[in-house]
Design a protein around this nucleic acid. Sequence first.
RNA 1: GCACCCGUAGCUCAACUGAAUAGAGCAUCUGACUACGGAUCAGAAGGUUUGGGGUUUGAAUCCCUACGGGUGCACCA
Length: 588
Amino acid sequence: MSLNLNLLISKEVKRVAGLLFNYESEIQLQPIGAGFEGSHTVVCFPISKVAKKSPEQTATLIGENLDKNLVSKFQVVKGFLNLTIADSVWLASFKDVYKNRESYLQLPFNGLEIMVEYSSPNTNKPLHLGHLRNNFLGWSVSEIFKANGYNVHKVQIINDRGIHICKSMAAWKLYGNGETPQSTGKKGDHLVGDYYVKFDKVYKEQMAAMLPTEDPEKNAPIMKLASEMLIKWEAKDPETVSLWKTMNGWVYEGFGKTYQRMGVDFEKLYYESDTYLLGKSEVLKGVESGVFFRKDDGSVWVDLTGDGLDQKVLLRSDGTSVYMTQDIGTAILRFRDFPKISRQVYTVGNEQEYHFKVLFLILAKLGYTWAKECYHLSYGMVDLPTGKMKSREGTVVDADDLMQEMVNDFAEETKQRGKIEELTEDEQKDLFEIGGLGALKYFLLKVDPKKRMLFDPVESISLQGNTAPFIQYTHARIKALIRKAQTLQLDLNNFSISSLEPAEREVLRFISQYPNKLAEAAREYAPSVIANYAYDLAKAYNQFYQSIPIFAETDALKLKFRIAFTEVVADLLKKSMWLLGIRVPEKM
RNA sequence: GCACCCGUAGCUCAACUGAAUAGAGCAUCUGACUACGGAUCAGAAGGUUUGGGGUUUGAAUCCCUACGGGUGCACCA
């Protein structure tokens, strides 16, 4: 059981406010504003309304009646009640955190299960920069929910069917000469992606050579081949299905390598080829029950004009399914597979906001009560300084290439500094991976997900500023300090201290707020909250360390306290970065 | 055209459910190495939070409006 300083103060203020004014609502507790004495502030305006007294009077009355053992001093500025917490309480709180530091940011299981979908690429091209934001975001949100006590199921849906796959297949059949990842040494996803590009090129050339009267868009030979393959695939033609399996296999193998380097994983994979039939039957059931309607040409539609949206097609006139149909099937299948999940999170780019709005509405109309627990974790596009990148245009930044470049650049910078000679070659390689990928992940995650952002590779690996390397470096320095302390044979288990420096109190305040930040990050599905808070802590620590040379301390008790204090900071940094999928080195 | 999102220092980003003097970093300028890893730290300068209204004791935050940027409005996925 851990002692939550904020909760303790809130409770006490609530007790007093209840006693004096019968105030029932929650207490607004905030960090102290700059330039004011104390550490916590109670905003008394809401209370003063109930109390029917001026904000100043209300604040003063509450302040006078607070437990003096908890709040040693208070000050009233306008409607703000500024509290100075007693040293003994700070110490007790800190000792508690120190004792439980391994589990400080891990809440016990709360009995709830949640599913997080992320990644979900097309199988016809390699992953790109946008997918990196998606994967890092999905993985991190999952970990944040785990830390908040949820049981999390990480899944993805794979677009393994449709005309886009057949395009790669057609191009490979015509121009592939039997090429395989083995024969070319290429990653499977890249090889298949190359043939998708090849298809596009040939298709455009063929269309340009045709007369408008020939309907080139449909009748270009390569497109005709792709369309035939789709029909054959749906008819389960053995040769076509076999090629489809082979080429998808190449892609999965390539993706697997990319995921491994990204550090993401999945509990279960869903394939559209497995879920679209369920979606179809659900839609047909909906027609029978009158939720959907059929047009004269046989196509099935849902009418959402009553919800402020428009009409949406669910089955084509030829009876085949569309994107929406598959997603209906997938959602239902997931709740069957995991009956205990209370919520489903879809990590998908913001260009699909309308799609998910419609999907959730349809599921609700079909009578699934869990539909209101579906959440679209929407994120903005990632731009590069050199120009904009879009998923459906040519200027795509490949994920594998970018990760490698980040690692190379970080290695280059680190070698130039020349402080890693004592590391073995393997250790160095690992360090470069930690630094390069950490820089990438941190930079993509520190920004509010819903905002469009600019990725600057140079800034991201900088050791100054709000970056992973800065935090990693701070952690490494603390670890070095602790190693040194241990050689001094300090007993860190029974520390005690007579008084605290203001700088120490400042960092303690940070630490005591950490669980709130964790909850906030989960509530907002925003790893950026954790990222920015970790940076603030690292920065506060650096300032502390600059103002108090730890080993210059002659008082043994104070020295012990400070070492213990740095250990907590290191652990919190490590855990925060872990929640972002970033490792922190012991040495760098 | 309709719908949704965004607009904060020169640049990249913060600001918890509305709260005190809107914060960091980069870049610029000035300082601190007899020092635990200076890869750091301190300081200066930089803002009418796109403009205009409104609600409120209090607005970057909520509402309206104009402007600017983005995205979506396929029997594509």
